[in-house]
Each structure stands twice: as structure tokens, then as C-alpha cells.
Design a protein around this nucleic acid. Structure first.
Length: 485
RNA sequence: GUGGCCAUAGCUCAGUUGGUUAGAGCACUAGGUUGUGAUCCUAGGGGUCGCGGGUUCGAGUCCCGUUGGCCACCCCA
């Protein structure tokens, strides 16, 4: 008896076949969404010099990292907790020769030494999408649209998930216009960030210290600000303050460009900085996924403009994705001044939300989606000639490039073996009936050929059958086709 | 790093105020209904009750420790 039982380290996961299938489905979905939006895949090392992470986040980050020194070595390394520093390093090294914009994505594994809890583990995968070298709102929206494209592909609707957007620069400009001194902005942002963790009354009380009325505090508490605007109206009020004519103009432009949308619009943080963003969101046809939300701050000090998080509409789980614009980050890592916008999405929360919404594909659909359905399941009916022909037939079919399976059981009960074939989600079955022939059955339709096929012709016959879509049935593929545009 | 809850077969669980060789369903394996994916029948493998220690005549059942899990805090790149 072993005196010690080996267990996986805290916060890590073991991936059995079904788990691997789901993980691959997710990463393949990430890849597909990235690629159809024109992003190129990159990657870096799984560990970096520790300094790379303290540059951006300070020494305090070290306790959150898995760091180590090689035996006998002097340098300290850390397993990567995020991709952004690596991205900045990659970009800075070749900035001069890279196109503008540079659009990169990756779907690697990350490590964080945190206490695990729901939606947070110590090892996880995260999709990163970044646009470098483009300061326009279109770049902001491109990142968000890629994110939304994934949600659509997975079967989510705007009723399931909400993209909650804020704008750091616009928010701070608005603070300033209200006479809040620059040095108090950080404290105010941090207060907004704590909104969901404070009792409403206390939150309002603390806001009052910044000069906000109880009525305005209520708007912050509700988080989302949707203001009724009539295109014919000459006045618009936000947070109880009437906007000036210069501010109203972009609203009206926005309204006129949005045929078919409701005249209820999110106008939180309305300003010259936000209107172009809203316009671009509309042009990308994802405005219906988006709410502006004053309380979205993100913990990062380096965000400079738009910031966003994606949450379940009902508020369950933690953020599915988050990101924003960080125009000074590349410079921080030694590159040229480069406007940049990006986002990250982890597999842990995404999986939880998919389960919440019943959007995890059934095993057969997963197998179809990630391309692991067997083409053919070869069965012997027990005839001595068929027994001898079984493995050579399997080999010949594999030589022709097909995904071929056969039983490892001893029974030759055809019914049981067809059951096994069906359990593997194979498209076609071949029942070898003798040394020289086998009959083909389509496991999707249940239709079996009336006449057997000479064994030497099986590779060609099966290949032909599969090319014509044979065996495609039997599973419902829930993965939606990419949407046009 | 702090706190709370939890830990019995691969999975979901039952195990009476501590008492004989620890159970069920599903799953799995084999066989049957003399070759067609259903249903069904039969048989079988598999746990020493996360691990270690303690109390007791006796512990899965009580106590302590430890490991792991879940949840919240901190943090969230």
C-alpha cells in the first residue's frame, strides 16, 4: 500500500478525454473568431524573467506569481500570469517592421498563485486579442466585436451576456468639468470599482464626498444609465445635468445613424470621446450587446481610454472577459509610443457561463465540432474469413487517410458492436462478412447497403461516401456558422 | 495570506443514539436472446470509508492534525 497518494496541485485540473474535448472546442472557437476578424496568432515562452512582471505591476505582484530560480542559477523567473508584458516585449523588439495596425491573438496557459475559488484557478487558459498601433475607436470596437463574435458562435445572445463599457478619459474629463481635482480622480475611480461590494447607502455617502447628489449617486448605484432621448428634442440631460449644445450634436448624429434601433440609448459618459465609440459599435452591428456602465473601472492603472467587461446579464459569475485601451504600455516596456487596445478571456469563467446557459455541446456535437468523429467503425461478423480480413481492412482504410476504429471486445454480436460503433459517434460502419466483402452502413441515417462491397474497393467506396456527406447525420451541430461580415 | 463548509466505489449517493465480512443506482467487463444500433436477463470486477494520529472493548460514524475541494475576503494583470 502506498503511504502517500499523489494529487494534482491546488488549483490545477486534470483533463480526461471529455474535458480535453471541451477545452479544445473553446480554444478552437477562440481561434476561429480571431482569424475571421483578421488577427494573427502569436505566442511566447511560458516563463519570463520576473522583472518583466514587476515593471508593470510593482513588487506587490510577486506574491501572486509562481517564481523560481534555477538550481545554481542567479536569475529569477516567473511562470507567466498574463500575456500583456510578453506582447509588449514582442512588439517592442520588432516595432519598426510591423504593420499598423498589428493585430495579434493567442490562447495560451497562464499561472497565478492565488487561492482558487469559483471561476479562478491557478492554471488556466486565456484568450488574448490585441490591436497595436491604431488609436481609433474602430480599433476599440474591433476588439469588442471579436469578443462578441465568439459569443454568437457559441450560441449566446444579448439576453445572456452584456458588454459593459466605460471610458476612463471621458470619465475623468467629466470629473474635471465638475470641479473634481485631478489628484482625487484615482480615489473616485477606486470607489466606483467597489460599488458592488459596498452597501448602497455607504456608496452614496462616499460619493457625496465628491460632490455628487444623492440622485446622481443613485445612478451610479444602478450602474447602467439609459437616457430616453428623442431625436426631436433640443435638450438632453445626463445625471440630472443639462448638456450644452456642443454635446448634444454628436448625440443627434448618432441617433440619425441608427435606423431601426430604439430611441433609448446609453448615454453614460456621453462626450466627444464616447460618441465616435458608440457610432463604431453601431457600425459593427453589436450595439445591442453593449451597455455603458460608470462602475466599470478595471483594476489596472494603465488603462487610458475605453475599458470594458463582459458579464452574465443576471450578474452571476465573475467577469467573462475584460479589456481596454492602454496607450502607454508598449512604451513602458521599452518600445516606441504605441496606441494599443486589447482584451482577455479565461476558459474557467467562460465554461461556467456556458454551463449556466446550457450551451456546452453534447458529446456527439463536441466530437463533430472539433473533428474527432471516427469516419468508419469496422466490424467482423465472426466468420473465419472475416476475422482474418478485419485488421488488414482497418490498416488499409487508415492508409487511405480515414479515422478508423474497431472493437477490442471478444463478442461478435453484431448488435452490440453496432452499439459500440454508435457510442463512438462514427459516421459509417462496415460489417465484414467474409474474406472478400463487407457491407457499408450509414450510422447517421441507419441505412445499410443492399449489397456488400468487395473488400479491396472499401477504401475508395468509403472515401467517396464520406465526401458526399455520408454519416453526417446523427448529431446536431450547435455551433453556428460565422456570421456574414 | 484570513475565515466558513465539506471529503464513503469511475459518477450520484445511502449508511440509524459508534457495534457483526461497508450498500444502491448508473457506468464498466463478460455471457445470453443462434448477425443490426432499443428494451431485457444473468454473472463479474471495483471502495477499508482522502491521509495520519487519538478516544473506546469496538469508529465510516466522536476528537486533533494534515492534504485536497467548495465558498467568501484580499487581489484580479
Amino acid at each position: 500500500m502506498p503511504s502517500h497518494v499523489f494529487q494534482a496541485p491546488t488549483g490545477t485540473r486534470d483533463f480526461y478525454p471529455a474535458d480535453c474535448a471541451l477545452r479544445r472546442f473553446i480554444t478552437e472557437s477562440w481561434r476561429a473568431a480571431s482569424i475571421r476578424h483578421g488577427f494573427d496568432e502569436v505566442d511566447g515562452p511560458t516563463f519570463e524573467h520576473l522583472d518583466l512582471y514587476t515593471v508593470k505591476s510593482g513588487e506587490g505582484i510577486v506574491s501572486e506569481l509562481f517564481s523560481f530560480t534555477r538550481a545554481g542559477g542567479e536569475r529569477t523567473y516567473a511562470l507567466r500570469p498574463e500575456f500583456t508584458p510578453t506582447l509588449a516585449r514582442l512588439y517592442a523588439a520588432k516595432a519598426g517592421s510591423l504593420p499598423r495596425p498589428t493585430k495579434w491573438f493567442c490562447t495560451p496557459t497562464f499561472f497565478r498563485a492565488e487561492r482558487p475559488q469559483r471561476g479562478r484557478l491557478r492554471e488556466f487558459m486565456q484568450w488574448n486579442v490585441d490591436v497595436l498601433g491604431d488609436p481609433s475607436p474602430q480599433a476599440d470596437v474591433e476588439v469588442i466585436a471579436t469578443c462578441v463574435s465568439l459569443f454568437r458562435a457559441l450560441g449566446f445572445t444579448p439576453a445572456d451576456l452584456r458588454v459593459r463599457i466605460n471610458h476612463r478619459a471621458a470619465l475623468c474629463a467629466w470629473f474635471e468639468s465638475r470641479g473634481i481635482a485631478l489628484e482625487r480622480h484615482e480615489a473616485l475611480l477606486s470607489l466606483l470599482d467597489q460599488k458592488s461590494k459596498l452597501p448602497a447607502a455607504e456608496f452614496a455617502a462616499r460619493l457625496a464626498a465628491f460632490g455628487f447628489t444623492p440622485e446622481q449617486a443613485e445612478v451610479f448605484v444602478k450602474g447602467l444609465l439609459r437616457t430616453q432621448v428623442s431625436p426631436r428634442s433640443s435638450e438632453v440631460s445626463v445625471l440630472g445635468e443639462t448638456l450644452d449644445a456642443a454635446s448634444i450634436d454628436p448625440i443627434k448624429r448618432l441617433m440619425s445613424g441608427l435606423e431601426g434601433t430604439s430611441d433609448v440609448l446609453d448615454l453614460t459618459l456621453f462626450s466627444e470621446a464616447v460618441a465616435p465609440l458608440a457610432t463604431a459599435l453601431a457600425a459593427a452591428r453589436i450595439l445591442d450587446w453593449v451597455d455603458f456602465d460608470l462602475s466599470i473601472v478595471r483594476g489596472l492603472a494603465y488603462y487610458t481610454g475605453m475599458v470594458f467587461e463582459v458579464h452574465e446579464a443576471g450578474g452571476q459569475e465573475r467577469a467573462v472577459a475584460g479589456g481596454g485601451r492602454y496607450d502607454n504600455l508598449v512604451e513602458l516596456f521599452g518600445g516606441p509610443p504605441t496606441p494599443a487596445v486589447g482584451m482577455g478571456m479565461g476558459d474557467v469563467v467562460l465554461s461556467l457561463v456556458m454551463k449556466d446557459k446550457g450551451l456546452v455541446p453534447a458529446p456527439a456535437n463536441l466530437a463533430e465540432a472539433i473533428g474527432i468523429r471516427p469516419d468508419v467503425f469496422v466490424i467482423s461478423n465472426g466468420d473465419p474469413g472475416a476475422e482474418a480480413a478485419l485488421m488488414p481492412t482497418v490498416a488499409a482504410l487508415r492508409e487511405s487517410g480515414l479515422h478508423v476504429r474497431h472493437t477490442y471486445k471478444t463478442t461478435r454480436n453484431v448488435g452490440k458492436l453496432l452499439r459500440e460503433a454508435s457510442d463512438t459517434f462514427a459516421r459509417l460502419a462496415v460489417i465484414i462478412e467474409g474474406a472478400d466483402r463487407g457491407v457499408i452502413k450509414d450510422l447517421g441515417t441507419g441505412v445499410q447497403d443492399a449489397a456488400p462491397t468487395p473488400i479491396g474497393l472499401l477504401p475508395a467506396a468509403l472515401g467517396d461516401r464520406l465526401r458526399r456527406g455520408g454519416g453526417a447525420g446523427g448529431v446536431e451541430v450547435s455551433v453556428k456558422a460565422p456570421e456574414p461580415g
